[in-house]
Design a protein around this nucleic acid. Structure first.
Lengths: 342, 342
DNA sequence: AACCACATTGCAACCGGTTGCAATTACCAT
DNA sequence: ATGGTAATTGCAACCGGTTGCAATGTGGTT
């Protein structure tokens, strides 16, 4: 059983089947010119020998590896587990293979680019809302098909993106808080360098600028992560906290929630909270976070769609696919003030 | 900028540098026979042209792709995000590239095996505590270096594993509950088919069999996932729940916690809970789960260690690396009963 | 100057496939 | 039979590298 079974190659199948190597190759290529008889014979022999065509060898001549670099820098936010789940399945469904790249901190695209070039990936998907546009741009400039998921809307005239309009999300958050009658609100963002945080803040401020009587603040957490949210909220609590916070991310919100509870305060009675993403956990009954839902599924489906279309037609028009976000009402904001009729 | 830069090959570098292709190839191979002068010249030209050696082409002759299949079937448990983070970084650090495979449900290794063979991966790491031993065995039988992480201790004489002794973990849980003075306890496992669940249960029962006065129950959740835990606990609550539960996983525990709280009961006053894994979330203040810590970092470091050692020496002895687990005391069990001295 | 060991280099074959092209075969109508 | 067209097939070159081997170059020794 444990024989070190040497890998079977084309040549051996050809010999045993009594045909040329070309015939074997064609037997495994859809639409190639082979008679049904030959194909059958070849497949039978291949089956018997346990032959698998070597995808890498064939990539040499076809120029296609079906390898897709899946690049991310966020392995501490549970929403990314959902993201990886969806990406890997979606890619697999299309016969593409995800080569996972963990960027931990690194913001210089060069070494990643080089590595992905060495492996001749057909394209790259960058799954991150914190990497700067220049990162994706570098891949594009190197002539590599690239899609930036969760990117800034209108990020670049050169690279395809799939995501949401974070400015609009900031507005939604602001409107929601105003609807609830809060008069002292703040944005608790992720890293100030993240385009997603910048945009959410700008939409938030934009809407609130029309509410002159409302006090507005903002601050940034070090990362889209629990501890960062907890720390940032603790800082808030050591000063004069706002009545409600729009947090740039669900897991950040949960960190904030934790800090609030540790301080002996309650949500939403003492402080209101809106998150962002609507990741699975946000709906867990013991978290029950009011949040802005980002249609992750759609974004990922589009991303994969875009990259495949880019593979087939490298010169295709650059496209941004943006999806609408909606607020999901749960238990971390005080109820809507019902204005009595008349 | 956006020129469709054709990829530079060996040949072009050779021509421009005025040397043979061999010389270029050797200039990029450590320890190869080239003069320093040639190597410098070649590197200079390569730099200028932006040449990257094609890893896949070279793999054809060297027989090494440095690709490692990273196979998992659990993309719904946040602990796996930590797992992927550690795996990808650890592999990258050794110059290996993770080809991620999402098994969603599938328990037949054949198609995965075929795919990984087509891509000539150097080896496979299976990261799962729910896949049956036969899964890893299939890879081994196909002559592929394989390490099964989070596998059952003494799973197989043929495949290397890294993990913990789940039977021992079951004993620890049982001892802990006894220490706390509970007299009616139960195991709330993951899927009954998971070796990890089977083993934890057997250790749990083994220890409790010596405590004849204690009532012991057990049941299984459909998966190591929140909803599954919640559902399973709801079922318990609709009957006569035990005083404390050993849950087969942290996220399962959190689901159970949610069900308990929804029922208007509190933890640990009404019901005690021990989880398993000690994933990041378990320590979040608003969860604060007492749990058995599995040294994920060590397990993953060992796994990568084993696979690299297997690559260098395919016939190396089969080895199981098992790590001890420890209970992490937090807030979901009632305090230890202090026996007054004398 | 002759000799030798050793370092460096290029040639050519090979890794496991694909593919353009020409040769062969099969099939069909006359 | 005969000719013609279309379907199959194999040859050989190629994809982008690596490597054994023989040829050449280098430096040191006597």
């Amino acid at each position: 059983m444990a024989t070190v079974s040497k890998v079977v190659t084309l040549k051996e199948v050809a010999k045993l089947a009594g045909v040329s190597r070309s015939a074997v190759s064609r037997s495994f290529t859809d639409g190639a010119s082979v008679s049904a008889k030959t194909r059958e014979k070849v497949h039978a022999v291949a089956q018997e020998l346990g032959y698998q065509p070597n995808a890498l060898a064939s990539s040499l001549t076809t120029g296609r590896t079906k390898l897709i670099g899946l690049v991310s820098n966020n392995f501490h936010n549970p929403v990314f587990l959902e993201v990886f789940d969806l990406f890997t399945r979606s890619l697999q469904d299309r016969g593409l293979r995800p080569l996972l790249v963990n960027l931990s901190d690194e913001t210089d695209p060069d070494s990643t680019l080089q590595m992905l070039q060495q492996y001749s990936v057909d394209g790259v998907i960058i799954a991150s809302s914190t990497l700067p546009p220049s990162f994706a741009q570098a891949f594009h400039d190197a002539g590599m098909p690239v899609v930036h998921s969760f990117a800034r809307a209108n990020q670049s005239p050169d690279v395809c993106i799939a995501g949401v309009d974070n400015i609009q999300c900031g507005r939604i958050a602001a409107h929601t808080l105003m609807q609830r009658g809060y008069t002292d609100v703040a944005f608790l963002g992720g890293p100030a360098s993240a385009t997603s945080t910048q945009d959410r803040l700008s939409g938030f401020l934009e809407t609130l600028s029309t509410h002159t009587q409302v006090k507005v603040g903002h601050s940034f957490a070090a990362a889209y992560a629990f501890e960062a949210g907890r720390d940032a909220m603790q800082t808030q609590l050591s000063g004069t906290p706002a009545q409600a916070y729009f947090c740039g991310d669900d897991v950040l919100s949960i960190g904030a929630l934790s800090a609030i509870q540790s301080a002996g305060l309650t949500v939403p009675d003492d402080i209101g909270l809106i998150g962002f993403n609507d990741m699975e956990m946000a709906g867990w009954q013991n978290i029950n976070l009011t949040t802005i839902r980002q249609p992750v599924k759609d974004i990922i489906a589009s991303s994969v769609d875009l990259i495949t279309s880019l593979l087939n037609e490298p010169a295709r028009a650059v496209e941004a696919r943006l999806f609408a976000c909606h607020i999901i009402e749960r238990g971390t904001l005080k109820p809507i003030i019902v204005v009595p009729e008349q």
